[in-house]
Design a protein around this nucleic acid. Structure first.
Length: 203
DNA sequence: GATTGGATCGCCT
DNA sequence: GGCGATCCAATCG
C-alpha cells in the first residue's frame, strides 16, 4: 500500500433531500468537496465540486426568480434537490441545484469542478486537452458533463445525475467572495471556492 | 412584435 | 485586458 490518499466516491450513494432543503448559502458552502456525476450512455463522467455561488430567491436582485415565476426559472420553485439549467449568452448552459424549502425559489450555481472520471469524454466534448480547461467555469463544466436544457427540473435523488458524498482534506480552506459576472447585488459575498485550487474559474 | 441585455468563453492584441 | 459571438428570455407596448 502506498501512502497516497486516493479520493473515492460512490455514485450508489447520493446526498439526501435534507441536505438540499436548507438555507442556500449553507448548501453552497457545503457542496464543496462533494462529487457531481452524470451516468451517460457514452460513459460515466464526474467531478469534485470546487466552486459554487448561492442565489437566494425573491429577495436577491441577481437571482432569476426575484421577479416571480417565469418559464425559464420555474424549476427553482418547488422541491429542493433538483436541477435548474438555463442558457446564457445564447451559447452556454449553466447548471444549478435547487435549494431551501419549497416556497423559497433559490439555487446554487456550480461554477467549477475538478475532473475525476470520464476525462477522455470531457476532452472530446470540450475540444480541449488540458485538465484545467475542462470544467473551470459554469459553461465549460456543463459542456464537459453533457448537461443541457433537457435536464432542467430533473431530480438529483433518482435520475442519471446526482451528487455523492466527498470530503474536504484538513488543509483545504473555503474562500468567500462576491459573485462573478452579475450587475446587481455585486458585492454580496455569495461565491465560495477552495483556496489555491487550480480548477476554480478565476482567482 | 420589437428591443435589450445576459450567473460566459475564447480569441485577439 | 478587451471584445465579439450568438440567441434566448424577459419586458414593454
Amino acid at each position: 500500500m502506498s501512502g497516497t490518499m486516493v479520493a473515492s466516491w460512490n455514485p450508489e450513494e447520493v446526498l439526501p433531500l435534507s441536505f438540499y432543503e436548507r438555507e442556500t448559502t449553507l448548501v453552497a458552502k457545503e457542496l464543496l468537496g462533494h462529487y457531481l456525476f452524470h451516468r451517460h450512455p457514452e460513459g460515466m463522467v464526474a467531478g469534485r465540486i470546487v466552486e459554487t455561488e448561492a442565489y437566494l430567491g425573491q429577495n436577491d436582485p441577481a437571482c432569476h426568480s426575484c421577479r416571480g415565476i417565469t418559464p425559464r426559472c420555474k424549476s427553482m420553485f418547488g422541491t429542493a434537490g433538483r436541477i435548474y439549467v438555463y442558457i446564457i449568452y445564447g451559447m452556454y448552459y449553466c447548471f444549478n441545484i435547487t435549494t431551501d424549502m419549497p416556497e423559497v425559489p433559490a439555487a446554487v450555481l456550480i461554477r467549477a469542478l475538478e475532473p475525476v472520471e470520464g476525462i477522455e469524454i470531457m476532452r472530446k466534448r470540450r475540444g480541449k486537452n488540458k485538465l484545467r480547461d475542462l470544467c473551470s467555469g459554469p459553461g465549460k463544466l456543463a459542456t464537459a458533463m453533457g448537461f443541457d436544457k433537457t435536464f432542467d427540473g430533473q431530480s438529483l435523488l433518482t435520475g442519471p445525475v446526482g451528487v455523492s458524498p466527498g470530503k474536504l482534506s484538513p488543509e483545504e480552506r473555503i474562500i468567500t467572495a462576491p459573485r462573478i459576472g452579475i450587475s446587481k447585488a455585486v458585492d454580496w459575498p455569495l461565491r465560495f471556492y477552495l483556496a489555491g485550487n487550480q480548477f476554480v474559474s478565476k482567482k
